[in-house]
Nucleic acid binder design. Sequence first.
DNA 1: GATAATAGCGGACTGTAGTCCGTTTGTCAA
DNA 2: TTGACAAACGGACTACAGTCCGCTATTATC
Lengths: 212, 212
Amino acid sequence: MSATIDLGTIEPGGERTERRDAAANRALILETAETLFNERGVENVCMADIAQAAGVGKGTLYRRFANKAELALALMDTQMREFQEAMLSRMRQQSEQGLSKLEQLDQFLDALIYFVDRHNPLLCVVQNEGLLESVGEQERQRPHFWQHMTVSGLLNAAIDEGELPPDLDTIYVADALLATLNASLFRFQREGRHFSLERISAGLRRLAAGLK
Amino acid sequence: MSATIDLGTIEPGGERTERRDAAANRALILETAETLFNERGVENVCMADIAQAAGVGKGTLYRRFANKAELALALMDTQMREFQEAMLSRMRQQSEQGLSKLEQLDQFLDALIYFVDRHNPLLCVVQNEGLLESVGEQERQRPHFWQHMTVSGLLNAAIDEGELPPDLDTIYVADALLATLNASLFRFQREGRHFSLERISAGLRRLAAGLK
DNA sequence: GATAATAGCGGACTGTAGTCCGTTTGTCAA
DNA sequence: TTGACAAACGGACTACAGTCCGCTATTATC
């Protein structure tokens, strides 16, 4: 009766447990992709290459990952969760220490900048496929979604604390602040404009500071 | 000796004048593309369709427009120039009337929002191909480039007028404000979040207002 | 007008994304 | 075990982007 529901990598209820060979292939594909990406750079590896290097058919590859963006997202998954949890625990701690919500926002944005920088190539791939598609598609937006929750949450909390005026459009502002960290723009700022991380961080925090 | 250099659609010096058949084809392709885009929607038309409908070979099509983004850009070209000139003349006029630089910035951003909304489908195509490529590629960035010039120019002018603090990183801020108008994000805000143009405009201007 | 030089043309060709479907394999119940 | 059945597999196939190159048309010159 009660099937042992294994949560796998995706938590929403109702997921069936993955067959053993499928799980093995998923791991194999991820390893292979990571290796190839490191060897040749993300943009110089195509899906067929990955399938061949992993010794599986293209059908198998696409059954697991609908495209390169999903694959890239899966590769970042662990580090994203770690980052996410680190931020949450840090913010909890900071709240206890009485740090203001706006200062917490500052630090969150700063940390996010370093994260975006480190993972820029993968993020470029992820975002290329991103928001564009049918609006309902939430899977690939997961990173943005979480980031948006965090930023708008901090903004709302700041309003509650009287640090920001209550009429602020926090949903919009969160969008705007995060738009700044779009991977392609970020790359252009880093490589084309030769901005340092410090400059980007200072600029963004300045923008946030203007809200009060 | 002195060849009559026809400026064509692109002005940088050293351009040869286009052969008559080539010019005819360019016009034919643009017309055809516009029709197809209107009939089926930009994203449901591929380059081969356009070539076929125009009755030219793919080679011919690609000789004129390296990809759909360039084609889309060319289709917006006229309206973009008009918008650009309208803005410039309006700003000149506003300066004479003593309107502050920050108010001019507000109005520019507001107008830009309506422009981005009207041309969203084409802009999505243009930006998809955009910034990503080799950083040097300036042709396709033309819209961004011009917008960035305008915004950072206004910010610098505002500093000169004492409306903004002189230590403001105007280059960065211009990037940040414009990042907000990224076509994909914009579309998401409009269709996914159901934001009105007024809401977006108010939010963005609020952000700009915080700079002082 | 004839001719040479060259820009322009067309469509076959290559490479990649992503789908489809007949075959194989793992899992669960008897 | 074994058999049934769903899940997973592989690779041929379709669709689209973009390139290449031999042929054609235009234009400048005489």
